[in-house]
Design a protein around this nucleic acid. Structure first.
Lengths: 124, 124
DNA sequence: GCAATACTTGCACGATGGCACAAACGAGCA
DNA sequence: TGCTCGTTTGTGCCATCGTGCAAGTATTGC
């Protein structure tokens, strides 16, 4: 796609950090996992809960079958949104705050770069 | 349930932004729109393109029917990821950098608050 | 061993989503 | 007016998704 160079490329202070390319940060799996209302409800529950929660506990926040909760949590874990820890017969889930915030901010940074960069042919 | 009296200290950067509750920021529509590989391809194309692009131009970046591109762009616009402008019979699309980065960073901030807040029952 | 608990997996079903193709729409132009 | 071009909408097909129910697995307690 043709690109013009109307504005000269600006160099923000944050550009000192090394950036990942935009394509790598636009991860369909993470967004897909966050694209379901029930899953978001479960994630929000885990976020607000000030501790690790069992599958049954998380399931208490929405009115779906426990098997559905189990599957949704597995999906969220595959996407890196939550992490799990097994202890005997119970599984504890917790929000992966670090991974989530890092992913979101890295993407925001990459988008900022793209918005500022006016170099023709630059892949950001 | 809602405890708003005591909040943990925030970093200066995050404190500068006004906070919305986590639930409001976990928008299924935006994430759902970003959850499809083809749509992400179109969005990435728009991001890297240093100008507004027509539907046909954006469609050039992936191998799907133009009608599909049109629908995908409409979906992205409904989610606030892109914006459009009609000029005669052509429609120009551009990435909504501001909206995207604001959404992502606000969510990251809210998640940070949640992660720091260890008050049981707090709704962050 | 046996039962209870905590969770996962198999399965069926309806809903939704992505896609291509064709047709329609609407603006510009001869 | 009729034509072309850029885009949208209608339609049908097929794959995937979300869900509940039932059965299975694994661990704990009696």
């Amino acid at each position: 796609m043709a690109q013009t160079s109307k504005k000269p490329p600006r160099t923000p202070a944050s550009a000192a950090r090394r950036r990942a390319p935009l394509d790598r940060l636009l991860d369909p799996e993470l967004f897909r996992a966050l694209g379901d209302p029930t899953r978001l409800l479960l994630l929000a529950c885990l976020c607000k809960c000030a501790r690790e929660c069992t599958v049954s506990e998380v399931g208490g926040c929405c009115d779906v079958d426990l098997s559905v909760v189990s599957r949704h949590l597995a999906t969220l874990e595959r996407a890196g949104a939550v992490r799990s820890r097994r202890e005997g017969r119970t599984v504890f889930y917790a929000a992966s705050f670090d991974h989530l915030t890092t992913s979101l901010r890295s993407l925001a940074d990459a988008l900022d770069d793209c918005a500022r960069c006016r170099t023709p042919g630059c892949n950001c």
